[in-house]
Amino acid sequence: MLILTMMDMSHFNLTINLEATMKTFPRKSTIFFAMITFILLCAISQPVCAADNYSNFEPPEACIAQAKTEGVLRIYDWAEWWPEELYTGFEKKYGIKIIRDNYGSTEEMNTKFRLNPEVPYDIVSIGSGSFMLLKEFGALKKLNHEWIPNVDNYIMDDFKKTEFDPNFEYYAPLSIYITGIAYNSNIVDPNTKDLDSWKIVFEKNEFAGRMTALDDSYEAVGSALMYLGYNPNSCDEKELKEATDLLLKQKPNLIAYDAYPTRLFAEQETVLSVMWAGDVYWTAQEVPGIKLSLPREGTMMGFDSIAIAKGGKSPAAAHLFLNWIWSPENHVKLIEGIGYAPTHKATPHMLSDKVKSFPAMSLSSEYLKKCILPNYEAAVGKGRALRAKIWEKIKR
């Protein structure tokens, strides 16, 4: 049971009846509590609050001084994703030069750290599945919480201890993502049958040859498993064989496996694509008419964040940047730019109506029951090796 008590138009209390909520959400992950809190925050009509209504907590002077001495911050992340002003603003404020190297897929990033866990990056942008993998490789440093006061003051309590990082030592989730189906509403009728189902990307139809899917083994196999009625984390070899056969059947209908098919949408080479929901939001800014559909069977979900890499030479600058991103002003810029749901206590109060209206920002409690987080076995254990073999076969 969720009890919402209105105090006034800009402040309210949220009380969760834990026993009743656990009956509604039988899975152990606390992500559902945080997501519901966020949904209720966004659902209430209230004025957008200015960033200066919330304090920015600077790290200790010793951290700032050491970071300036280090002078350089090396970041490994996706290209053209976060707003550029988050990087340039940091450089201007602290006088620290940022050098970025970009990867084109999670597989590329995972492979680089598998081959060399001490790649000389200070910060790496990773999702929850890759976090578990890089932690297993020994590629990450523990957080110094004294140097990241914005994180400790503003992260929603439910995210301080996750099943991925139970002691809150390595990872501070910045946002929450889900996977959906993007389509060009100028070409694809929103009332098209099964547009709200994985069926539309796995069964041959009029969009064959004009579709793309994510270049990501976990997402590809997971979507096939969900369409077949299985858990996307399944490590059952019979179920994975069925998923493999389905992916092989799907492959001729795709023009590419592509994490960012914006150009393909713009040139109308693709009209339908499996994408991370936030990237649908981002693509829609570039290509008018791009919409998001959520598969009725359910979908995969996870966290996005940045972690501090073991091989980096600028640990203070890395912490300083993490704290910078977690300031209320910068975190809302991040969420407004990428369209993912926030884990920051202040951000929901500050989002524009445009972002609040995006489908991935207003998931119902019923749909959340169908959103599945990656688990250790699928991301790192037996399931990863099985998925790697499947992906090698699919990509031949």
Rank of each mutant, 00 (worst) to 15 (best):
I3H: 04
I3T: 13
T5E: 07
M6V: 12
H11D: 02
F12L: 07
N13Q: 14
L14F: 15
L14E: 10
I16K: 01
I16N: 01
N17H: 13
T21L: 10
R27D: 12
M35V: 13
M35Y: 01
T37S: 11
S45F: 02
Q46P: 08
V48I: 14
D52P: 14
D52W: 05
S55A: 09
P59R: 08
P60T: 04
E61V: 09
Q66A: 12
T69L: 15
G71M: 09
R74Y: 11
I75H: 03
E80I: 00
P83M: 05
E84P: 14
L86I: 06
T88K: 11
E91V: 07
R100S: 15
N102Y: 12
S105W: 08
T106Q: 08
E107N: 13
P117M: 07
V119Q: 09
Y121T: 07
D122I: 01
S130N: 10
S130G: 14
L133M: 14
L134C: 10
F137I: 00
K142I: 02
K142W: 00
H145N: 06
M156I: 04
K160V: 09
K161I: 04
K161P: 05
T162R: 04
E163H: 13
F164K: 00
N167G: 07
N167C: 06
F168H: 12
Y170R: 07
A172C: 13
I176M: 08
I176F: 09
Y177G: 09
Y177V: 06
T179Y: 01
T179N: 06
G180A: 10
I181W: 00
N184T: 11
S185A: 13
I187G: 14
P190H: 05
D196I: 05
I200S: 09
E203W: 05
E206D: 13
G209R: 06
A213S: 13
D215S: 10
D215Y: 03
E219W: 12
V221H: 05
S223H: 00
L225Q: 00
Y227L: 00
N231T: 02
S234E: 01
S234K: 02
E239N: 03
L240Y: 06
K241F: 10
K241Q: 11
A243L: 09
L246M: 13
K251T: 10
N253Q: 14
I255M: 09
A256Y: 01
D258P: 01
D258H: 03
A259H: 07
R263H: 12
Q268G: 03
S273N: 07
V274C: 04
A277K: 03
W282C: 10
Q285R: 04
I290G: 01
K291M: 15
P295Y: 00
G298I: 00
G298C: 04
M300R: 15
M301W: 04
G302M: 05
D304Y: 05
D304S: 08
S305R: 08
A309T: 15
A309K: 00
H319E: 12
N323I: 04
I325H: 02
E329Q: 15
K333L: 10
L334Q: 06
L334N: 05
I335S: 04
I335T: 01
E336S: 05
G337T: 09
I338M: 09
A341H: 06
H344Q: 10
M350D: 03
L351M: 14
D353A: 14
S357H: 08
S364W: 15
S364H: 10
I372T: 04
L373A: 00
E377A: 10
V380C: 09
A388C: 12
I390R: 09
E392H: 11
I394F: 12
R396A: 11
